[in-house]
């Protein structure tokens, strides 16, 4: 179901050829072309790969990409069917967490771990949230191009980006420590399956709460999803 407008002033009249197929008409011309593009095998390939890369791994398993591609084509290009196939795919759930959290994901996950009730965010926390998105380079609605945000770890770890993440986590640790949040409690109650044994050991050795919380946020398993 598509709504579109034609602007006769800007529309080049006549038959157009796209990917070897001829299209005629006004609005119908554009709609027919888009429909064909949407169901093109190359589109299926690209979208299934992008979805798998976004949710599973920078280099997604071929089996999952294939399953998504099939779902896309079989459903005539329906994205929700493809998403369903992702959830149904066993290969999608196996394996270690390897996707690096992008800044938005990191900021939100950190907030959720430290302040489960969004309505109770203090103004300091709200500022920290925005500052996180700003300094880590993912302010909402400011993606660099129609491609959207980069989706591989290397794009988010260039320069001194990791230090900026750690610095932000340090500040979050300060705010949470002031509220008496205990990092071990967060690790056990809020994120039970997440921290590795090594991380838990480090948390226990942390000299103060701020360091403990900052360590939890910095830990390899929290930086990933």
């Amino acid at each position: 179901m598509m709504d579109s407008l034609t602007s006769p002033k800007h529309h080049q009249p006549g038959t157009q050829t796209l990917l070897g197929k001829r299209y005629t008409g006004g609005v119908e011309q554009g709609e027919a072309a888009l429909r064909d593009l949407a169901q093109h095998p190359a589109t299926a390939q690209r979208l299934s790969w992008r979805m798998a890369r976004h949710f599973i791994a920078d280099d997604p398993p071929a089996a999952v990409v294939a399953a998504l591609q099939r779902a896309f084509l079989d459903s005539g290009g329906d994205l929700s069917t493809m998403a369903g196939a992702l959830i149904d795919s066993e290969a999608a759930w196996e394996g270690p967490l390897t996707k690096l959290r992008r800044p938005e994901e990191l900021v939100i996950a950190s907030m959720r771990a430290l302040q489960p009730e969004p309505a109770r965010l203090t103004s300091e926390q709200r500022e920290a949230l925005v500052r996180g998105l700003e300094t880590l380079g993912q302010m909402p609605w400011s993606a660099p191009s129609p491609e959207g945000w980069p989706d591989v770890a290397a794009s988010w770890l260039g320069g001194d980006a990791l230090l900026t993440r750690l610095q932000w986590g340090w500040e979050m640790g300060r705010l949470a420590a002031l509220r008496g949040i205990d990092p071990l409690t967060v690790a056990h109650d809020v994120l039970p399956d997440l921290p590795s044994r090594q991380t838990l050991k480090a948390l226990k050795a942390a000299p103060d709460r701020q360091t403990g919380i900052a360590l939890l946020l910095a830990s390899p398993s929290f930086q990933r999803r």
């Binding site: 750690l166 610095q167 480090a202 360091t211």
Partner: peptide, 15 residues
């Protein structure tokens, strides 16, 4: 706000 301390960064490096 204050910078992340060296001891903290050392612990991160360890992890």
């Amino acid at each position: 706000h204050s910078d992340a301390t060296d001891p903290f960064l050392e612990m991160v490096a360890d992890l």
